[in-house]
Simulated assay, not measured.
Amino acid sequence: MTEFSLSQVVVSQEGEQLYSFEYAATVTKTSTTLVESFAQLGLIEPVGVMLSRRDITRIAQIQRLRHDLGLNLVGAAMVLDMAQEIANLRTQNQAYQSLLDTMLDIKTQK
């Protein structure tokens, strides 16, 4: 694994700032071994050996669910995935409702 200093800034092709596993471990108060385990289990999606801010947030959320609710890694990841799916469905529902409202407004104006 390539070593990166904590102060090094790496930017993805999409312009997203990326962070080392060491930085992620420091800010989430875990170990690089645990961060690597998260990556190996597919709980986070590193870009090579770097992580996005979203991945670091997910590590912190998983750790909080493990600590607060006593969930195991897979259970915590499932809770986060379901919460994201619910948020996506709510967004879709709002878009469909807005479209329906627009269509009803057009129909009543005729």
Rank of each mutant, 00 (worst) to 15 (best):
T2E: 15
T2A: 07
T2I: 14
E3P: 00
F4S: 01
S5F: 12
S5Y: 12
S5W: 10
L6T: 13
L6I: 15
L6D: 15
S7M: 11
S7F: 09
S7W: 06
Q8E: 15
Q8K: 12
Q8V: 08
Q8I: 08
Q8H: 11
V9L: 07
V9Q: 13
V10M: 05
V11F: 11
V11R: 13
S12G: 08
S12C: 07
S12L: 10
E14P: 14
G15T: 14
G15K: 14
G15I: 14
G15D: 07
E16Y: 09
E16I: 14
E16C: 10
Q17W: 07
Q17R: 11
L18E: 07
L18N: 04
L18F: 08
L18C: 03
L18S: 05
L18G: 04
Y19Q: 02
Y19R: 03
Y19K: 02
S20H: 11
S20A: 10
S20V: 12
F21P: 07
E22L: 05
Y23T: 02
Y23Q: 02
Y23E: 06
Y23I: 02
A24W: 15
A24H: 14
A24Q: 12
A25R: 01
A25W: 06
T26V: 10
T26Q: 13
V27T: 04
V27D: 06
V27L: 02
T28R: 08
T28C: 10
T28K: 06
T28A: 09
K29D: 04
K29V: 00
K29M: 02
T30R: 10
T30D: 13
S31M: 08
S31C: 05
T32F: 07
T32D: 12
T32H: 04
T33Q: 09
T33L: 08
L34S: 03
L34P: 00
L34W: 12
V35N: 01
V35M: 03
V35G: 00
E36R: 10
E36D: 14
E36L: 10
E36I: 09
S37P: 00
S37N: 11
F38H: 14
F38G: 02
A39Y: 13
A39I: 04
Q40I: 04
Q40R: 05
Q40A: 05
L41S: 01
G42H: 13
G42C: 09
G42M: 12
G42S: 10
L43C: 03
L43T: 05
L43G: 01
L43Q: 09
L43I: 08
I44P: 01
I44H: 03
E45L: 04
E45G: 01
P46N: 03
P46K: 04
P46V: 05
V47T: 06
V47Q: 03
V47E: 03
V47M: 00
G48S: 01
V49F: 06
V49M: 00
